[in-house]
Design a protein around this nucleic acid. Sequence first.
DNA 1: TGACTTATGGCACTAAAGTATAACGACAGG
DNA 2: CCTGTCGTTATACTTTAGTGCCATAAGTCA
Lengths: 210, 210
Amino acid sequence: MKLVLIDDHPLVLQGISTIMQYQDDLEVVGTACCSREGLKILAESKPDIAIVDLRLSGENGLDIILRGRNVAPECRFIILSSGSDRADVRRALNEKVEGYILKEATPEEIISAVRLVARGRTYIDPLIMQSLVCEEKDPIEELTPRELEVLAAIASGMSNREIASSLFVTEYTVKKHVSQILDKLNMADRTQAALYAFSRGLGQVSAFCS
Amino acid sequence: MKLVLIDDHPLVLQGISTIMQYQDDLEVVGTACCSREGLKILAESKPDIAIVDLRLSGENGLDIILRGRNVAPECRFIILSSGSDRADVRRALNEKVEGYILKEATPEEIISAVRLVARGRTYIDPLIMQSLVCEEKDPIEELTPRELEVLAAIASGMSNREIASSLFVTEYTVKKHVSQILDKLNMADRTQAALYAFSRGLGQVSAFCS
DNA sequence: TGACTTATGGCACTAAAGTATAACGACAGG
DNA sequence: CCTGTCGTTATACTTTAGTGCCATAAGTCA
């Protein structure tokens, strides 16, 4: 069973490689630390399974998986995440990855997850499963697609007028959406909504993260 | 040279342990994945050097270091960070840690960093150094203490009236501060300021981070 | 002392944000 | 077909937010 690892943390690559050395049925045939290298190795070594970090510096691990499926159609993809970023989980699960493991997991869990995926099953870390079930339904789920667009714009620091022109609607419409959003989120003003949205990944990070 | 590792990612622990195995002068004498365990091991094994993840699930790595210095006064502390979180860097550097390495670093860099710290020097990852130097002087530095208080309040989603009553001043004063803040930060409204401040750690996280 | 910064309070004014209510077309589900 | 939701526009209104200008008091620094 050929494995490829894509992560920008050499320590993690080293860690996975080490624990895989003792498994007769699993072999790491390549590692990469960025998007370019990752796609190259996927194309070259045609692995059975690829373990991909969700947040590579700058780029998103999901993009690699989406593009990776083209160059290595037979490959099953497992996402490796830091657990703290719950915002990404939902987006990832929508992309139908074959597995989702946390860096907090023990080596035994990781190995059994890989074997499970190798046999065609899907593995989702129990902690994530739990957080998806127990999670008091995120009020953000009640927002319509359009409202999500508006909220993202708010979380980018835009005014109603700017949002209106960027969405090609009138300011009235934007105000309507904003009121609706604040109502659904049970918040007092756009600033609270912006902070809320920003804390779970919406908005243009560029402006506020140097 | 005795090493202790504190990180909630088993893969990272495995990775560091592995690369240290081939260094005759360095030996990992204990690992921990949380604050409690970490302090216990520090007290028991009295290591020469401890490598501590900056963001342990829930708790902050800095707290461990602060408390760790009590139970293991001779120990030198190296922070291990994910690089993406520049907000924490400044706070960490203020605490006078002996080293600061990134998970993006190669095993060779990490080893040489450990050796450097072992000899009493301080090691800061070049990338961090660069970001501290090149960084266009953070406009937040220009704010007065009082303005910082107000900004933190804004980043907690408070209105001018709420801020006024919480700081025991009138709304006029708060408005004055807000204007001043927006002027210094060169931003258009409180929402932008809130996002900016929030992204570098100010504000009450409680309200917006589930 | 004089110049400067910080923190404070006040007023008037403009601009923006948010609410309430109403209406219309499109579209999906029962 | 009817009902409900979504996205849209609109009017009218209230409330915050933010700016400009002024003024006072305390503390710092040369």
